[in-house]
Design a protein around this nucleic acid. Structure first.
Length: 801
DNA sequence: AGCACGCCGACT
DNA sequence: GTCGGCGTGCTC
């Protein structure tokens, strides 16, 4: 008797455990751990992951047999199965959610229900119900309002319900035509064809010219012949037709010119050599590659990977939201060609699935991708690289709330290989670990071409205001912009819209339009002319007069990119502006198009939000302007200073990377703030020291770890009292060393009419905390569902909202 | 999560 | 009497 242990696709606490299933005789030896299977679960059939195979079970009296395997080979190997279990404990998530997070979305199951007719005797009523067929889908039955009738028939034994477990994935198939005749035969046929068969003749002539064994349907139809002519030739035995699976290639129409390794500078040489050693001796080590922008980190990545590939191993490269850095993908594709699989959010579900399968089938040796690419199913991993290590997008905000850096380190330990964390502005956590020698620090302090860092000037916008300049461009930025336009050099204008995006305020009474369901002000959307809530989606018309005092002195505060664009055209009517934000880059590929447009010199100014801060490298940019540096500085987040510093430094790094030297203008209302000051000087080390003092005083990371618990409910009192109870419980079970803040209202105290309270735990070493938090979930579970409470626990949170 | 089972109110 | 409301509890 063989029994499979299965984690079922039901993400709840009660079912977050292994269920035992009998393996039918015919699949013994075929069902393996890591495969997806369809299993009966209660009255339904659902998907599950096999985690093990054993010979007996404590449930032997009520064992059911599994229905069928959904994979031919396991989709999760032993390492990934173990990683999933660890991840579930570490982030307090369900095992099933962790397994699903490791696979492309296409592999998530899709469930469908059908009614099957059992009684096939002539019966007008049944004939009518089933519309003369043997089965009817649940959806159809629902539409036709015959669910009760069908349920009755099930009771009579005339029908039954079947559950289908389907995969979202569709393999893409194309028709291929194999040549079945030799030239002489084709020639004979060609001559015997009637004169009006011009299309068939075209194809045969094409075949005689090409002399290939196989032709795709596309190739043949390019001769101008219709499908019917091809079919005619298949009938005549010229071709045999077959279907083959093809990968959807997102880079189909892109050409990559092969690059060779560049000679390394002394500094690069020094940095890469310990990495190469670690690869050689196959041991685990985390390196923090701290290198200023333009110091050549990527070449170090490339050459380290080359070494890994030479050893027959594989590499993972994580980049933040990769669709935003097409230049990065190009560099990897150019060096390693088809060995590279790319996984990022810009791909369709099918494309992602295909790229993933290239990895699984060992057709790709290098994966370049966003956060989830850290789970690439390699079995002989030689290196994991995390570029722009400080980026917060490496933390997943939905369940499972994991950080790619932690997963990378876990996997590297398993594979005995190095992790490289690269950044010009490392996260405080990583830099502190490097200082404590937990990570091994490698430094690149000089730019490759020995170009000096751009000159940065910080402009105090309060002074501009005092001097009567009420425009969003300071006099300095204005004159420099004019200068660049004159010289035909390019400018990047960076607008940080986060923080306070455009909201509406009455200048007479100070009324600010709020969302009726959430405690947050509504955002003004010019293109739809609506006031919108970014949290619950509520929207309403834009008022002409103040709803409170009927004044018509209504102003829109905060500056959107559209508004800046309009202003720009007012001041510089001839400037050619490319605007990049969520509105202009929504469509697939729009991003690349806009960048190409700018790169080819068809525009003078690139105006955008966060997304233009990263990785762009254009030679002709000599001016970078930051319109308001401090919009995110006042967010209720202990990382606000760090984020501001990183952003300003990254943006500044976009200027003067090549022959032309660059200038940066940072406009701010708080020029004295240390993160603005040190970013202006590009002085990471002094920023680090200052910020470490702030973190120490506030007992924040990297001095303390954090766990954040958020409780929400429609009733304020209920929310507060529950949070209080939970806080007390936790307090009683951990040491006095830990600091507990709360219960306090969340920074956004109400979303979608639900009040939100939280409790923040700061601690250094609390081995009992995670088990305690798990107990909280377990203990309150039933009560929570019953009373409509929701609880979310975030270990090491990055979003404090 | 779904779904069945079960125990109480308004109808043919 | 029964249909159907949704509270409760289970799923190998």
């Amino acid at each position: 008797m063989k029994i499979a242990t299965v984690i079922v696709d039901v993400p709840t606490l009660g079912t977050d455990k292994e269920f035992d299933y009998l393996i039918p005789e015919k699949w013994i030896g075929i069902i393996e751990p890591g495969m997806r299977v369809a299993v009966p679960f209660g009255p339904r059939t659902i998907q599950g992951f096999v985690t093990g195979v054993k010979s007996d079970s404590p449930f032997s009296n009520k064992l059911k047999a599994l229905k069928e395997p959904l994979d031919i080979t396991p989709v999760l190997n032993k390492e990934l199965l173990e990683l999933g279990e660890w991840l579930a404990t570490d982030t307090l998530s369900f095992k099933i959610s962790c397994f699903q997070a490791m696979l492309p979305a296409a592999m998530k199951a899709k469930y469908e229900k059908r009614f099957l007719r059992i009684n096939k005797e002539h019966n007008p009523f049944l004939d009518d119900l089933f519309a003369g067929k043997q089965e009817i889908s649940w959806k159809k039955a629902e539409e036709r309002n015959i669910l009760p009738a069908l349920h009755a028939e099930i009771k009579f034994g005339n029908a039954e319900v079947v559950y289908d477990v389907k995969s979202l994935a569709r393999k893409k198939m194309i028709k291929v035509y194999q040549t079945m005749m030799v030239n002489a035969e084709i020639l004979t046929l060609l001559n015997s064809l009637p004169s009006n068969a011009s299309n068939q003749k075209k194809i045969l002539e094409f075949v005689l010219k090409q002399q290939a064994d196989e032709y795709s349907a596309k190739e043949l139809s390019e001769t101008g012949a219709p499908q019917s002519s091809i079919q005619a030739l298949v009938k005549k035995g010229v071709f045999s037709e077959k279907s083959v699976e093809v990968y959807r290639d997102p880079f189909e129409h892109k050409q990559f010119t092969r690059t060779e390794p560049h000679p390394l500078t002394n500094e690069q040489q020094e940095a890469i050599s310990p990495i190469l050693d670690t690869i050689e001796c196959e041991k685990y080590e985390t390196y923090l590659l701290y290198g200023v922008t333009g110091s050549g980190k990527t070449e170090i990545y490339l050459q380290s990977i080359q070494k890994v590939l030479d050893k027959g191993q594989e590499a993972i490269v994580l980049v933040p939201e990769i669709s935003l850095t097409p230049q990065m993908v190009d560099r990897f594709k150019s060096r390693f060609g088809d060995d590279v699989a790319v996984l990022h959010s810009g791909l369709s579900i099918g494309e992602k699935y295909d790229e993933w399968r290239k990895v699984q089938r060992k057709e790709a040796k290098v994966v370049v991708g966003a956060r989830s690419a850290v789970f690439a199913p390699f079995e002989n991993l030689g290196i994991i690289i995390i570029d722009e290590e400080h980026e917060t997008s490496y933390k997943q905000e939905e369940l499972p709330r994991y950080h790619a850096r932690d997963v990378a380190i876990y996997r590297a330990k398993h594979h005995h290989c190095p992790v490289i964390l690269g950044s010009a502005t490392p996260s405080l956590e990583s830099f502190a670990r490097a200082q404590k020698k937990v990570y091994h620090q490698l430094t690149l302090s000089r730019r490759m071409n020995n170009k000096e860092l751009p000159h940065v000037s910080i402009v105090d916008m309060r002074e501009e205001m005092r001097d009567g300049n009420r425009s969003m461009f300071s006099r300095e930025l204005h004159s420099k912009l004019a200068d660049r336009l004159e010289k035909k050099e390019q400018t990047i204008l960076f607008l940080n819209r986060r923080g306070h995006s455009s909201f509406m305020m009455c200048r007479d009474c100070g009324y600010v339009m709020q969302c009726p369901h959430c405690d947050i002000s509504l955002t003004f959307h010019r293109y739809t002319n609506e006031m919108k809530c970014h949290y619950c989606g509520f929207n309403t018309f834009v008022p002409n007069t103040c709803p409170e005092c009927s004044s018509n002195h209504i102003r829109y505060f905060g500056t959107g990119t559209q508004k800046v664009e309009e202003e720009l055209y007012k001041i510089f009517p001839d400037a050619r502006v490319v605007r990049m934000d969520v509105d202009t880059t929504g469509r697939k590929g729009a991003h690349e198009k806009l960048l190409e447009h700018f790169q080819s010199g068809k525009a003078d100014i690139l105006l955008g939000t966060q997304m233009i801060a990263k990785g762009l490298d254009f030679p002709n940019i000599t001016l970078v302007g930051v319109l308001s540096a401090d919009t995110m500085l006042h967010l209720p987040d202990f990382r606000a200073s760090e984020k501001t510093f990183q952003l300003l430094t990254q943006v500044s790094g976009r200027a003067g990377r090549h022959e032309l030297s660059g200038e940066v203008v940072i406009q701010t209302y708080t020029p004295e703030h240390y993160s603005v000051q040190f970013a202006g000087k590009q002085d990471y080390d002094r920023f680090y020291h200052q910020e470490m003092i702030m973190r120490k005083v506030g007992s924040y990371p990297p001095f303390y770890y954090l766990s954040l618990i958020t409780i929400s409910h429609e009733d304020l009192m209920k929310t507060v009292s529950t949070t209080e109870k939970i806080t007390k419980y936790i307090q009683s079970r951990i040491s006095d060393e830990a600091i507990i803040l709360g219960p306090v209202a969340s920074p956004i105290p109400r979303i979608n009419n639900r009040y939100r309270y939280q409790c923040l735990i700061k601690y250094k070493h609390e081995p009992d905390l995670k088990p305690t938090l798990h107990k909280v979930l377990e203990h309150y579970q039933q009560q929570f569902i019953k009373e409509g409470l929701t609880i979310s626990i975030d270990v090491n949170p990055y979003m404090m909202m």
